[in-house]
Amino acid sequence: DYEYFSKRALAYQKYWDKDTRFFRGKNQDGSWLTPFNPVHSTHRNDAYCEGNGWQYTWLIPHDVEGLISLLGGDDAFVSKLDSLFSVNADLGDAASPDISGLIGQYAHGNEPGHHTVYLYSYAGL
């Protein structure tokens, strides 16, 4: 069981798109869902539930070190995390009302992001 679930806990890496630098949804054939806009959100009708690409990029609380590595190390991790709080863009008319308390794209009022502000502590800067 330990080996099975340890391997499964790393499955998030399959959804990392190194070109866009976001986690993305995939089609059944393994290709990326398109079109892709990391800000746009369509409530329960896209790859994210109550969030968008910006918010779900940080939902790896069980392997923050792995996330830091995917993002290119501490400096790149902190730079992208800083950007989360400064990217101002409209989520779209179909976004979930649960995506609330926005500071940039950080959604303080929604569960997928409650831990996000604490991620700075993991960067070895």
Rank of each mutant, 00 (worst) to 15 (best):
Y2T: 08
E3D: 13
F5K: 04
F5V: 12
S6W: 14
K7T: 02
R8K: 15
W16T: 00
W16Q: 05
W16V: 08
T20C: 14
T20G: 14
F22W: 07
G25F: 05
K26M: 05
N27W: 08
Q28G: 10
D29S: 03
D29V: 08
G30L: 13
L33P: 13
T34P: 05
T34R: 02
P35R: 13
F36R: 07
N37Q: 06
P38Y: 09
S41P: 02
H43M: 11
H43L: 13
R44C: 11
N45F: 06
D46N: 12
A47R: 02
A47Y: 12
C49M: 15
E50R: 05
G51M: 10
N52R: 07
N52P: 06
N52C: 10
W54N: 05
Q55V: 05
Y56A: 01
W58G: 07
L59Y: 13
L59N: 14
I60T: 11
I60K: 04
P61Q: 03
I68F: 01
S69Q: 12
L70H: 10
L71K: 09
L71Y: 03
G73A: 09
D75H: 09
V78D: 05
S79Q: 15
K80A: 03
D82P: 06
F85N: 09
F85Y: 07
F85W: 11
A89H: 02
L91S: 01
G92H: 05
G92P: 02
D93N: 07
A95W: 00
G101N: 10
L102F: 01
I103E: 15
G104Y: 02
G104W: 06
A107G: 08
G109N: 01
G109K: 00
G109D: 12
N110Y: 05
N110K: 01
G113N: 08
H114K: 08
H115C: 07
H115V: 10
Y118W: 13
Y118T: 15
S121P: 08
S121I: 03
S121T: 13
L125H: 11
